[in-house]
Design a protein around this nucleic acid. Structure first.
Lengths: 229, 229
DNA sequence: CCAAAAGTGTTTCACGTACACCCATGC
DNA sequence: GCATGGGTGTACGTGAAACACTTTTGG
């Protein structure tokens, strides 16, 4: 049962910054801790890494166990290793960030005992450990990456309007974009395919729905294409 | 002496990809292992993380101990956690990459017992563990980052010619650059200051030496300036 | 008919790119 | 005087940015 080593070892965890997009706002999924330390505080989903799983597998497992989130875009973010980031003992945490499409992907924001909730990135509560720093790093990374990789689509349902896409970019980049220039650019890349559906149940003219052609994107990348907003 | 835990723990190491630039070629510093496993093979400098030091401190310490490198640009790269990346037991490694100016910085490529040597990135020997993957990740990162952050200067002496700088970019980006356009762009940013010195001991017209004005760069960044090559 | 968002082109300007010759120096 | 790299300017085309009105639909 106990495990003994010649030298002391840090504990190893993974933490996940799960991004969602809803009502024109970028959101982060947090869970309320039901154990000390920081009992009752909001924190990132995460936990200890098992020895028979990779770091990414650990992140996916924790996401599933703690939030019910299953099919997501996941990418390693940064490893946080300050000596006193956990008050109990030395814990090094490999942080990941995930993008989920609220709407599709049927996620239950609560599965285990503890409750989970979405927060606007601009109105985060006080967080446990150094999780504020982790979230800030994730936002910065997302902001940088979204401009030269087509990862924004991971935050939208499979079919979406051009306005939804524009509002998503505006939320992530934190600046307004010109409608005509945005459409010209994104349609000019020839990566969106027009579906024959339109928005439903809106109190104004319904917009056309598009989907991202990932297969085509991959083909273009092989020929040196660079996505860029 | 022995340390006991309730659950098994992975060991935690840091590994460093140290880049240098010499004779128009991008180089990586490797050390020859004098212990099993992979005894006699070339590997990245690195080692176990102590519990009273941060990850970055561990990386700097290992660099000092194993290569004599002291004053460097250091940045976390990625954390490698495949289950069997070390044949002995589960070891998770936080990789860093460093940029050093060969020429200045008085580095002795060998300090400890094991010998160390510089290798062109295009002619690397077979490496221990998954270190090839780590080097590949580092090259990719450097290639991406050098275009929008002025980190190239870390690989040059304090005073350098515009041709040296151009050759550095050509080596990292793996493509030729136009001399006039390169000079126009880099001088147009107004971040290089012309010194009153010129190259010495060259068998042709001596080039002017410049230095990078880091203080000015920082000031410009605060006003929204973006470096870009 | 009013509110709300969808959809659509043109002009301007900055910047990226392509390109060739003379100059200074050491041998 | 010759070999070697240093240093310099212009013309062209592409793409970013600014900008306003008409259309469709539901209430």
């Amino acid at each position: 049962m106990p495990f003994t080593y010649e030298y002391p070892r840090a504990a190893l965890t993974v933490d996940c910054v799960v991004f969602g997009f809803d009502e024109g706002e970028l959101k982060v999924l947090l869970i309320r801790r039901d154990l000390a330390p920081f009992k009752g505080k909001w924190a990132l989903p995460g936990g200890f890494v098992n020895l028979d799983e990779t770091l990414e597998q650990a992140a996916l497992r924790e996401l599933r166990e703690e939030t019910g989130v299953n099919d997501v875009y996941l990418e390693q973010l940064y490893t946080f290793g300050d000596v006193h980031r956990d008050p109990r003992e030395r814990i090094v945490s490999v942080a990941y960030y995930a993008l989920v499409a609220l709407g599709r992907h049927t996620l239950q924001a609560s599965t285990d005992a503890a409750d989970a909730a979405w927060f606007c990135v601009s109105e985060l509560p006080s967080l446990a450990f150094d999780h504020h720093k982790i979230v800030a790093t994730a936002i910065q990374r997302l902001k940088g990456k979204v401009r030269y990789q087509p990862i924004g689509f991971e935050l939208l349902p499979e079919r979406f309007t051009l306005s939804q896409l524009q509002h998503l970019y505006e939320a992530i980049l934190e600046r307004p974009l010109d409608k005509r220039n945005f459409r010209k650019k994104i349609l000019g890349m020839d990566l969106l395919v027009e579906t024959d559906e339109i928005e439903q149940d809106v109190a104004h003219r319904a917009a056309r729905l598009y989907r991202f052609d990932e297969a085509k994107y991959r083909r273009l990348v092989k020929r040196g294409f660079n996505f860029e907003i």
